[in-house]
Write a protein that binds this DNA or RNA. Structure first.
Lengths: 191, 191
DNA sequence: CTAAAAAAGCGTAACAGCTCAACTTTATGA
DNA sequence: TCATAAAGTTGAGCTGTTACGCTTTTTTAG
């Protein structure tokens, strides 16, 4: 990696750092894009060249590929698990691991949970994996890649953590959601 | 209804009309808010007093209460239908009815389908009913109003039409989604 | 009937996020 | 070494949105 790309990465990093610092200090909505650019000693135009998706993208610097993990959870699941069960296990796992990963990570999560715009953005980023996950599920079930049932399952599985977060007992809620996907709604016909 | 409210409704209507006309003529992103206000012979400030939720709200003037219909579909469903089946039927029904309702309605739908910002907004409006629907489901099943399973079912049922739209055969897709919610994912344990 | 409260509307000015065009610097690589 | 491409800068400008202070109209009460 040449000096050029190193410098570029450095600027990008300093932008993301400044943004995260200022946001956690004073709140997302009370920090303007101009100020972030100033703090990173960079022009606003440059900021938007590094983060073309806008202000929200500044917070989500590290785009780890959870997509691979999702697909793997379906493809290489143990023989005694259904697809929903495998996804359930995998989502439980990554969640707990992340909590204890980084010192600044708690601030990061709290910031996202607090700010509606960031919640929405995070949700959108997360749901981008729907296509890949649906394809993996379809392949597993021997159906067409754009089969509506597979797309629905993928979508619902990805929304499960979003729904579970915010419940009193998130783990139990997540289990309930995946139980629904696994066995269907247990209601009787007469209410 | 006094003269005051009549005039208010009139300006609101002329704003919505102008917006829909201009949007369908030249596209959502190519029509500014100032221009809409001009076309309705009204100041920009007034426009935002009528539509505080912003530009997108101009398109969704008629906020018919589908919420009541959703709740009723659960509460007063025939004895031989499960909750997902009842919701499925109700969503099929309203969909087909709406298509043939109004002459300008096709433009309206096409505009929404074409414009990402409007799709997002419509989705958000639609998902506002999640709470009420979840409460109805919980009541029906004898569970707590904030039960995660009920919330999940409500959420998934509301997202079903969003998912089905865009498939080759929307009706078939909708049926598939509700079948998933009714009976669970039919996959085997060994992929 | 008239005074006053309430509400609709107006115009200006401003701020936010974001983009564009033209220009300068700096590293790359042929 | 020198042309080129990429990073960065500057500065103006557009769009949605809001605040402020003001006028006009409608309603309501005394």
């Amino acid at each position: 990696m040449g000096r050029r790309e190193r410098k570029k990465a450095a600027t990008r990093q300093s932008l993301a750092d400044a943004a995260l610092r200022l946001f956690t200090e004073r709140g997302y909505d009370d920090v303007g894009v101009r100020e972030i650019a100033d703090a990173a000693d960079v022009s606003v135009t440059t900021l938007f060249k590094h983060f073309p998706d806008g202000k929200e993208a500044l917070v989500f610097d590290q785009d780890v590929d959870r997509e691979a993990a999702l697909v793997a959870a379906v493809r290489e699941r143990p023989a005694d698990l259904t697809v929903p069960q495998a996804l359930h296990r995998m989502l439980l796992g990554t969640h707990s691991r992340q909590v204890h990963a980084d010192p600044r990570f708690d601030d990061f999560l709290r910031l996202i949970d607090t700010t509606p715009a960031l919640r929405e953005y995070a949700r959108r980023m997360w749901l981008r994996h729907e296509h890949a996950l649906a394809a993996a599920i379809a392949d597993d079930a021997g159906l067409a890649a754009d089969d509506p049932g597979c797309r629905a399952l993928a979508h619902f599985a990805l929304e499960a953590p979003v729904l579970a977060r915010g419940a009193q007992d998130p783990d139990a809620a997540l289990a309930r959601v995946f139980d629904l996907l696994d066995h269907g709604w247990p209601g009787t016909r007469t209410g």
